[in-house]
Design a protein around this nucleic acid. Structure first.
Lengths: 217, 217, 217, 217
DNA sequence: CATGAATGAGGCTTCATTCAT
DNA sequence: TATGAATGAAGCCTCATTCAT
């Protein structure tokens, strides 16, 4: 976790540091990400990084926690108890996710990498397998829905869960790839970053969830 | 692509080389994979690698092509023209995929990494194309099925394709993770590598495809 | 030498600083000793060190002088003029040395390092002089004793001096190693630090001096 | 231990490497010795060192073994069984030691550092406490001599051993410091390296041993 | 054709010291 | 006077690649 030195940094400087480091770690595997590149980009001294963090791993862990907090802020506004229907809840989670991706694209890409692409041994132990957790949550829920009748009883629970997990990953990836491209294109063409496409993505998500629903009904 | 020197190598030597290199690249990102380690493992001269291949990238590209060819050999036995029903064809593709994973686990893991985990800039331009290709193939096919009536016309083609792609990824990952574990466990416990679990995986695949079918029908 | 700032420090703070710095320099070579670690241990500002001392060397020199003064305070209670016999005087010096080692173990260990283990070029010019000084003192004294008859005249003075110096070093080392272990063991076992072993050491010193006497008589 | 690469090096190159590395490690503590300085002195590439040795420790261990072998070659010509008198044997060991110091001054200084000055934690476990071994050997021998009558029975064996050990250290140090200076002076003044002083040292050693004998008789 | 020594860029990290606040 | 952020040199080590033999 960062030193006091880092936390005491002027807000702007600290933020610039975070963004630059996030970009490096979002674009590269843990092993390939280079502290050298970060300091060159930031134009700061080599030693500064080590006044902020004890080492590369410490920096990575901080960025992970930072990103997860950012994501939580977006996600937690979706209050499960307000939904009578799981599917709508599930759908809204993704739509919030899209907002997160739009507003904090670096965090989003970094977390995406951690969740799907990271394979360095140095961080392996810190990649808490969200898939395992998600599986447990979904299993409970699928059983529920079977009783409700919104999922038919002949479907094997484990397989249904696997099915839903697939879709979840997939929707995440969809946003990451398609959407990042869109943002980059818009950036390049100096158009406003977020155009009508958000609506398009929301529609896509809804239809995919609808298919999921069909499949299991 | 490899030099003649490499192709003229004694079969066994060439094969050992391939396996060792594959293992290194299957276990590590392109950047992290180390030619150093390969030559130490093989106990060959440093220079040999550069007499077989022009550089690291060249070696990687060869391994990629080699693995793809191995995979094709397994897959192409599934002859589309023999199937009246696409879903059955699709299902059989995955079942063949499982066989491939069992018989050529290094190739399989290497290709899996390329498809899902690789992110080095050095190889960026050589990967990811399969999703584009697959998309094109599935688009043609979804339109077909819509005419056949096995996919309902109200579903947006692009979304249906996305849906199928998700499931395809997912099934691939399923085999990689669950199955690799099984293999490793069996290895460790000195049991025969492939046990009854194959049948279990086949069943899982079939059910997942069935769900896909339901969703789109 | 330290700045006024340092000397004006509250007694306790100054003392804590000295002890912590002493510990670092007693445990590590000059080069390996780290100001970093000292300030972390003390929880003080990096800059403070440089407001107390001009640089690392200055700090080291101060600690050296400080330790030497501490040692002198112990040693000078042994008043040469009160002894008619040099050997008894010599013996008592060591016995006082043991007291010093017990009461100021950090100073003692630091001085021991300086005398026997230090080899950094940065401090080379400040050490080793004690052997030269000691040699001069012993030379005068050996000549004296030759006249007294307590050292036989056929012994080469230089060699006799060398012989006495050896024994001096050796007794010092004896205390450092054997005694430090005892202290540490006692610390670990929560026994009182100084047990009957002091008497044992005194006895050892006396016997060694006796041998010295025999040798030269 | 060194790689084949190192062992296959041209004799002269390998020897130059050893000498340069020995000099660095003889002049500096393990921590302070710098591979950087070695490669600059040798004008070789940074990476070469790591083709010869796995790391700094590996290099140090090799130099240690190398030096010990060199020393053994000198020492083992002194065959204990040919001596009826231990003191003569003991004396000759030191005289051989002087020869070693003259012929392999770097090895000698390096071993001296290991034996007396080294305090890095990285190598602590490899500094086999020769003092412990020596103590055991001397204890056996002192008991013997007591029976022979060449050491009087009233002397405490442990103390006698301590006494002899001191002298052993001391003679070693004597050679190291006095002699090194002489060599360096001679080097500087382009005189022949080894002058009449050898005889002087031999005489010194003999007289010191004589004192030792007196002390214990 | 195989060998394996040489290369040097680049990686992470530690450190003593400076200096603006 | 105290603070603590900034600095950059130097340390060890790994790597892909080259090239003389």
């Amino acid at each position: 976790m960062p030193t006091e030195t880092f936390l005491n940094l002027a807000d702007e400087k600290r933020q610039t540091f975070i963004e630059t480091a996030l970009k490096e770690f979002a674009d590269n595997n843990y092993d390939s990400a280079s502290i050298n590149k970060i300091i060159k980009e930031l134009n700061i001294a080599r030693g500064s990084v080590y006044q902020y963090f004890t080492d590369k791993l410490d920096l990575w862990l901080y960025l992970k926690e930072y990103s997860e907090i950012q994501k939580l802020r977006h996600i937690q506004s979706v209050d499960r108890s307000k939904y009578t229907d799981f599917w709508t809840y599930y759908e809204d989670l993704f739509i919030k996710g899209i907002n997160f991706d739009i507003e904090k694209p670096l965090c989003s890409r970094f977390l995406y990498r951690i969740g799907y692409k990271e394979s360095s041994k140095d961080v392996a132990e810190y990649i808490d397998n969200w898939k395992v957790t998600a599986k447990e949550i979904f299993t409970v829920w699928v059983d529920n829905e079977k009783n409700n009748g919104s999922i038919k009883k002949t479907v094997d629970t484990e397989i249904a869960v696997q099915f839903i997990l697939s879709m979840s990953s997939s929707i995440g990836e969809l946003v990451q790839t398609k959407y990042s491209n869109a943002i980059e294109n818009n950036l390049a063409s100096e158009k406003p970053l977020f155009t009508e496409s958000i609506e398009e993505y929301k529609r896509t998500v809804k239809e995919l969830v609808q298919l999921l629903k069909n499949a299991l009904k």
